[in-house]
Design a protein around this nucleic acid. Structure first.
Length: 732
DNA sequence: CAGAGTGCCTTTTTT
DNA sequence: AGGCACTCTG
């Protein structure tokens, strides 16, 4: 069989990786070196050259998006969908195993997956039941603790006893949490992995089956695996199977949630006869961008070592812009965006990256003002939204009335006269009798435990849910129709319409979006493990963020955190807020390893850019309500100077070159006050008074002398541009 | 019981 | 700044 089509379009190193013998291999793939390409071609090669059935292959990724992309590209290359091959995320595949073998895994058949929000609710409920002081053990920290333990593969019983009452309290809560999950058939994200691992360890026959089945396992983004994922992989691969691990130690950015960079660093020690291949030729970025990236990452120790190169030209230098404040930073970005747009670059090719989600707001406001469409990734995900979760909870309750979580969630949404008091009574009865809340509610209705008004409200709610149960079971209704009716019957639309502001409007739209997502949901592909489309849909809603919902095809600027930018590329990239305390985040200063991770994050950011990279920072920044003066990030200094260029929008301003200077604090003060508008008596940062608009702060200017215009941020009137020779501004 | 209003607290990244 | 829990009022 002619297999040349698989190897033809590859470079030497890629070909080496793709056509490697059927053995363990580690592909160290630098950013933009064709990593996914290698994975996909490797799969095609295994099928054609070694005649492996897709059935004997498993490919694991971290995100659903990556899994979908891989699936699509395999199909494209091979021509047909790889029947029987397991392609999915760690969580998705673990889930699949557990659905198929729920009994062996010691689960209930109808077990449910909780997202982090559900998890937190459960923890709070447990703590309230136990009357535990939430200020001493903040529920969020409890959740964090439990998740961290699970990432390490530890159950409550494995957590070592400690002399510290705080940790012991945590452990105690973990016990109770495990118990509650067990009782209610609930699994959090970490539990999926932990349980799937245990399933294999405790069922030798099952393990043998899967080890024999999966001749070769491929893993993407290997540097992000945590302990339990790694353990699971090793078990699945076994002694007979082999593995291809693709990753980049320089792009390991998930240490904070348990990823172990050691997994890739020690790969050759843990697996036998590993062939290591480095992909260092970059097809994405210009020479300058790569030089910057290489220069930066050299400051990290313990690297496996890799240097990106390209045979295309060096391109433009990287521009660094120092904004006066975050508004100014955003305005600068917008000006550049407009310039590029007018030159014909489509907005989709531009990305604005930031360290934390909170930073997006100022930029968004600016985009709205300039009427430039944008799309924001991450943040609150579609299926995480309150209104969506409520609608889903109705569906869950309609399927299983004993689902307490769902019951708690929607029993009084929209308000129907079942207040805290009544809910408390229901909860109490349920707890005393060890029954579900629904059963408790039935008793209340029968015995009239509560006042007539409350009882009637409960009765009405139960009738409503029973009606929905009929709807869900109706054989001729599509999934979309079912949700349409549920939303209708629950009265969610008028409830949200009543909300003031645009919020309610957006929620109604989201509910409509849910209906269309449900209509478009195809079940056939998701295989036999799931017993009904509705159940499959509900599971998928928890596991898949549903990120690509709205406006996917509109030409819009892309906004996202650095973390969610990994794996993507854009011709024009803005790396924003590159300031000490922000990026690197001040949280990273305590442990040395965290700073290295921030640096890798910066490396990821830089290497997203194909043609042109802008790095921006603000000398003063208002975040979380208070103003701070941060110095430019050390990362800027770590980039080789000769690939940087400092941008001054208005070139008259003589600004001290601040990048190489260690002592920023005093200097920032000077900068704040030092920008005089040429041939005028006004400087940036001055407080001024206007006869009509009142007092404000000068934050920007244009032109000079009689033509000069300044932008003033008035205390009460917002920001305005004023021509100096007309406006009567008094400097205070 | 519902809805408005007040005060308090948290601020990194998310499968 | 924004979200959340709690209190107050109709």
């Amino acid at each position: 069989m002619d297999v040349s089509f698989i190897l033809d379009a590859l470079n030497d190193k890629q070909r080496e990786a793709v056509a490697a013998p059927l053995q363990n291999s580690l592909v160290l793939a630098g950013a933009g070196s064709g990593k996914t390409r290698v994975l996909v071609h490797r799969i095609a090669w295994l099928m054609h050259a070694y005649e492996l059935s897709p059935y004997s292959l498993m490919a694991v990724t971290f995100t659903n998006k990556a899994a979908r992309e891989m699936q699509g590209r395999i199909e494209q290359l091979v021509g047909v969908p790889p029947q029987g091959m397991w392609v999915g995320t760690f969580h998705g595949l673990a889930h699949r195993l557990l659905r198929a073998h729920w009994r062996d895994a010691g689960l209930k058949e109808n077990f449910q997956i909780m997202d982090s929000d559900d998890q937190l609710r459960l923890i709070k409920r447990i703590m309230r039941d136990m009357s535990i002081d939430e200020t001493r053990w903040p529920p969020k920290q409890v959740a964090w603790f439990i998740n961290a333990q699970k990432d390490e593969g530890r159950r409550a019983a494995h957590v070592p006893d400690s002399h510290d009452p705080f940790s012991n309290g945590m452990r105690e809560l973990y016990y109770h949490y495990e118990e509650a999950c067990e009782k209610n058939g609930l699994l959090d994200f970490g539990e999926l992995l932990l349980r799937a691992h245990e399933l294999m360890l405790t069922n030798p026959a099952l393990l043998r089956h899967y080890q024999q089945r999966f001749v070769h396992v491929l893993v993407d983004e290997f540097q992000d695996t945590n302990s339990i994922q790694y353990a699971w992989l090793r078990v699945m691969v076994g002694d007979q199977g082999t593995i291809t691990a693709v990753g980049d130690d320089d792009q390991s950015i998930y240490g904070w949630r348990g990823a172990k960079i050691e997994n890739i660093q020690n790969f050759t020690k843990h697996f036998s006869d590993v062939q290591t291949i480095r992909l260092e030729q970059n097809y994405r970025s210009t020479g300058n961008i790569l030089k910057a990236a290489n220069g930066l990452i050299r400051h990290n120790d313990d690297r496996l070592g890799k240097e990106l190169w390209t045979d295309s030209g060096s391109g433009e230098p990287i521009s660094v812009y120092a904004g006066f404040n975050e508004q100014d930073e955003a305005r600068f970005i917008l000006e550049v965006i407009k310039k590029w747009r007018d030159k014909g670059t489509s907005l989709t090719d531009m990305a604005i990256l930031y360290r934390s989600n909170a930073q997006s707001r100022v930029i968004e406001e600016c985009l709205v003002r300039e009427q430039i469409p944008y799309r924001i990734y991450g943040g609150h995900r579609f299926y995480d939204r309150l209104e969506i979760k409520n609608a889903l909870a109705y569906a869950r309750l309609a399927i299983d009335a004993n689902d307490d979580g769902a019951m708690e969630r929607v029993i009084n949404v929209p308000p129907r006269g079942i207040g805290e008091r009544s809910i408390g009574t229901i909860r109490e009865i349920a707890r005393d009798q060890g029954c579900s809340m629904w059963q408790a509610a039935e008793q209340i209705v029968v015995h009239g435990t509560l006042p007539a008004r409350a009882t009637n409200a409960i009765k009405a709610f139960m009738t409503l849910i029973q009606g929905m149960a009929q709807t869900v079971q109706a054989p001729d209704l599509g999934l979309g129709d079912v949700f349409e009716q549920i939303i209708q019957e629950a009265g969610l639309i008028p409830y949200h319409e009543k909300e003031k502001g645009e919020k309610g409007e957006a929620r109604v739209e989201n509910l409509q979006e849910l209906v269309s997502a449900a209509s478009g949901f195809s079940w056939s592909e998701t295989d036999e493990e799931f017993s009904s489309p509705m159940l499959a849909f509900l599971d998928q809603a928890v596991l898949d963020a549903g990120d690509a919902q709205a406006d996917e095809y509109q030409d819009s600027v892309q906004l996202m955190t650095l973390h969610s930018a990994k794996g993507l590329e854009f011709p024009l990239v803005f790396l924003t807020g590159v300031e000490e305390n922000l990026f690197p985040s001040k949280m990273s200063f305590e442990e040395p390893g965290r700073l290295a991770e921030e640096r890798r994050l910066c490396y990821v950011g830089i290497t997203r850019a194909m043609e042109k990279l802008y790095i921006t920072y603000a000398e003063s920044r208002r975040l979380h309500g208070s103003e701070s003066f941060n110095s430019p990030s050390r990362f800027i200094r770590e980039i080789p100077e000769d690939c940087l260029e400092e941008v001054r929008l208005r070139s008259q301003v003589a600004r001290p070159v601040s990048l190489q200077r260690p002592d920023y604090q005093a200097q920032n003060q000077r900068i704040m006050q030092g920008h005089q508008v040429p041939q005028t008596n006004i400087s940036m940062g001055d407080r001024v008074r206007h006869p009509i608009f009142g007092e404000g702060l000068v934050i920007n200017y244009e032109g000079q002398g009689p033509q000069a215009r300044v932008q003033v941020n008035f205390d009460t009137e917002g920001t305005k541009w004023l021509v100096l020779s007309f406006a009567k501004l008094e400097v205070l």
